[in-house]
Computed example of a mutant assay.
Amino acid sequence: MSKLKNRYLSLDVFRGIDVALMIIVNSPGNGDTSFGILKHAVWNGFTLTDLVFPTFLFVVGNAMSFSMKKYEAEGSGAFFKKVLKRFSIIFLLGFLMYWFPFFENGELKPIAETRIFGVLQRIALCYLFASILLHYFKTKSVLIFSVLALVGYHIILLIFGDLSLTGNAVLKLDEFLIGTDHMYHGNGGVAFDPEGLLSTLPAIVNVIAGYLTGKFIQKSGQNFETIAKLLMIAGLLVVAGFAWDLIFPFNKKLWSSSFVLLTSGIDIFVIAVLIYLLDMSKPGKWTYFFEVFGRNTLFIYLLSELFIISLAEINMKGTTAYNWIADNIFIASAGDYFGSLLFALWIMFTCWLVGYIMDKKGVYIKV
């Protein structure tokens, strides 16, 4: 059995792969001509792109399996203060990102029309609730909560609405709490937030799955027995997810309970494979590319979003800089589909270069 380090290479690489993919799917040159695998399912269904966000939550939980020990040693008061501080910063960064660039036509953009929930906000909320659960309750109780959360979420959706875009309980609760002006309008103009408050409940389970996986690996060690057990658990979760899909379809926007089981199973499978390839074998130098993303994860993700938003705000020859560069450089050279992909890769490599410089200078921004 190899000695487990404070961090394992597979975690950094897994997180780096996920961030790289997240940037690619968030910045297509032309969304209409993106390859199908790089698009979210329209409603029910599952694509590679739908795996990106739950994987991010999974690796958040995985990283927590290392950091929680340090927090717990400092006592409950210090623990809660640190967790609350981290939650507040991440949530605020997410809100400011949607408000950015703050001004429009020389005037301050109205907060009344700024989206409240979103990707970073969901990460913050899931981190907060998962941290509290994992700190104050034993593993058995956390597992019972996870089951109740997934089953309860399904029941809530059935009682208080249906599973359609315009009739679901997630939409109804967000409308009641924050109003449609604060919600995402990217679903054909329909106000519905795929990171709504109610659907955060099942998403917490993705973080818990990552945490428990990390704790199991640390306890059992990096060996073939551990990998075999992880693969078995992954298989059971995927099968259970497909069974639940028959009555509660895979749906990233609703964050359906079947979706949680499927994505958690896939993530456990991937981390098991990476442990064998990277931590139990000699991986070679290719891993460094993804380690760069994994070492400044939050900063690079935020940088990519601000880069995309800035390009979309700059006027260039009757259109935005985002569209002009995509259309006149990448799509004009490589065609609709490959051009859109190359544009996304350009955004990703630009952000990687910033991360590379930071890594070489030993600059790591942690929240």
Rank of each mutant, 00 (worst) to 15 (best):
A234F: 05
L158T: 13
L84T: 15
K172H: 15
L212N: 06
D245S: 11
I233L: 13
S10A: 15
D162P: 01
R86Y: 11
M316K: 14
G61F: 00
P54N: 06
N187I: 11
I357C: 01
A344W: 08
I365C: 00
G339T: 04
S310I: 08
I132S: 06
W346R: 02
K253I: 05
K253S: 10
L302W: 12
V147F: 14
L311Y: 05
G189N: 10
N187A: 14
G294V: 01
S220I: 04
L278P: 00
I178W: 03
F259K: 05
F103D: 06
R122I: 03
I308A: 09
G118A: 11
M1H: 12
L342A: 15
F100C: 08
F343K: 05
G16Y: 01
W352F: 07
Y153D: 10
V270F: 13
I17F: 14
F80G: 01
A272D: 02
L237Q: 09
L125M: 13
R15K: 10
L157K: 08
I144F: 10
T33F: 15
L51Q: 09
F343V: 07
L237K: 11
E195T: 00
Q222R: 09
A169H: 01
G196D: 08
K85A: 12
F349C: 09
S65L: 07
T47C: 05
M316V: 15
N30W: 08
I90H: 00
L125N: 02
T263E: 06
I37P: 07
A191D: 11
L277S: 03
F160W: 15
A334M: 12
F103W: 13
I17S: 05
V239S: 03
F56V: 02
Q222N: 12
S67I: 03
M280K: 04
Y98D: 15
L158D: 15
G196C: 02
S220D: 09
